[in-house]
Each structure stands twice: as structure tokens, then as C-alpha cells.
Amino acid sequence: TTYKLILNGKTLKGETTTEAVDAETAERVFKEYAKKNGVDGEWTYDDATKTFTVTE
């Protein structure tokens, strides 16, 4: 399944996708990605669109 991440950081904005077996796995991948890019904020997930959003 393809999951999407929307980054709404103070200095970094953008989108990325990952293939994962479930939302929990995708969330771990995306949180590591955000951490590596210095983005830390509020996380939300929309199951209907398989989209995570992190907003600083």
C-alpha cells in the first residue's frame, strides 16, 4: 500500500511517499524521515487517503 507524508515544517515543506504493509509501518518510516530532516510537530493521519501530515 502506498502512504503519503505531507511536511508542513517551518523551513521545509513538501511531500513524499512510501510503500508499507500497514499504517503503523509507514508512520515509523515517515517519523524517521521527518526527524532526519529536522521537522518535529503535530502528526495527523487520514485513513481514507492514507496520508500523514506533520505540522510545525
Score class of each variant (00 low, 15 high):
residue 4 K to L: 14
residue 43 W to P: 01
residue 21 V to L: 07
residue 44 T to L: 14
residue 43 W to E: 00
residue 5 L to M: 11
residue 49 T to M: 13
residue 24 E to P: 09
residue 11 T to R: 04
residue 14 G to W: 09
residue 42 E to M: 07
residue 32 E to H: 06
residue 52 F to K: 00
residue 8 N to T: 15
residue 11 T to C: 05
residue 3 Y to L: 01
residue 56 E to I: 04
residue 21 V to R: 09
residue 33 Y to N: 02
residue 12 L to H: 09
residue 41 G to L: 02
residue 1 T to A: 08
residue 42 E to Y: 14
residue 47 D to I: 13
residue 42 E to I: 06
residue 26 A to M: 01
residue 20 A to V: 07
residue 39 V to T: 04
residue 27 E to W: 14
residue 25 T to M: 12
residue 47 D to P: 14
residue 48 A to P: 15
residue 50 K to G: 07
residue 37 N to P: 01
residue 5 L to S: 00
residue 32 E to F: 07
residue 1 T to D: 08
residue 6 I to N: 05
residue 18 T to D: 03
residue 5 L to N: 01
residue 2 T to V: 08
residue 43 W to G: 00
residue 25 T to K: 13
residue 24 E to R: 10
residue 52 F to C: 01
residue 15 E to H: 09
residue 46 D to Q: 13
residue 22 D to H: 08
residue 47 D to L: 11
residue 44 T to K: 08
residue 48 A to K: 12
residue 21 V to H: 11
residue 43 W to C: 02
residue 1 T to C: 04
residue 44 T to W: 09
residue 49 T to N: 10
residue 52 F to W: 08
residue 10 K to D: 10
residue 32 E to W: 11
residue 16 T to S: 11
residue 56 E to C: 03
residue 51 T to R: 03
residue 17 T to Y: 05
residue 49 T to R: 15
residue 28 R to T: 12
residue 40 D to G: 12
residue 27 E to Q: 06
residue 50 K to H: 14
residue 3 Y to S: 00
residue 18 T to L: 12
residue 8 N to A: 08
residue 20 A to L: 03
residue 39 V to H: 05
residue 16 T to A: 07
residue 15 E to L: 04
residue 29 V to I: 15
residue 24 E to W: 07
residue 8 N to S: 07
residue 45 Y to C: 01
residue 31 K to R: 11
residue 23 A to F: 12
residue 20 A to E: 14
residue 50 K to P: 00
residue 53 T to W: 08
residue 50 K to T: 05
residue 46 D to K: 07
residue 44 T to S: 14
residue 35 K to Q: 11
residue 31 K to S: 06
residue 48 A to L: 09
residue 2 T to M: 10
residue 37 N to I: 05
residue 29 V to T: 11
residue 42 E to V: 09
residue 4 K to S: 05
residue 8 N to E: 11
residue 46 D to Y: 07
residue 24 E to I: 10
residue 10 K to F: 14
residue 43 W to M: 06
residue 22 D to S: 09
residue 27 E to M: 15
residue 26 A to H: 00
residue 17 T to F: 12
residue 7 L to S: 03
residue 28 R to L: 15
residue 9 G to V: 14
residue 53 T to M: 11
residue 1 T to H: 06
residue 25 T to D: 14
residue 1 T to F: 06
residue 7 L to D: 01
residue 19 E to Q: 15
residue 28 R to E: 13
residue 8 N to C: 04
residue 2 T to F: 13
residue 26 A to N: 00
residue 30 F to V: 02
residue 3 Y to E: 00
residue 31 K to V: 14
residue 49 T to Y: 10
residue 30 F to E: 00
residue 17 T to P: 02
residue 40 D to F: 07
residue 20 A to Q: 11
residue 35 K to G: 10
residue 2 T to W: 14
residue 51 T to E: 06
residue 49 T to D: 05
residue 14 G to S: 15
residue 41 G to Y: 02
residue 44 T to D: 10
residue 43 W to Y: 03
residue 36 K to L: 12
residue 9 G to H: 10
residue 56 E to K: 02
residue 42 E to P: 07
residue 29 V to A: 13
residue 54 V to W: 03
residue 38 G to F: 15
residue 45 Y to D: 00
residue 10 K to G: 04
residue 51 T to I: 10
residue 37 N to T: 14
residue 21 V to G: 14
residue 1 T to L: 11
residue 17 T to N: 06
residue 9 G to Y: 11
residue 9 G to I: 12
residue 35 K to E: 07
residue 42 E to N: 08
residue 20 A to S: 08
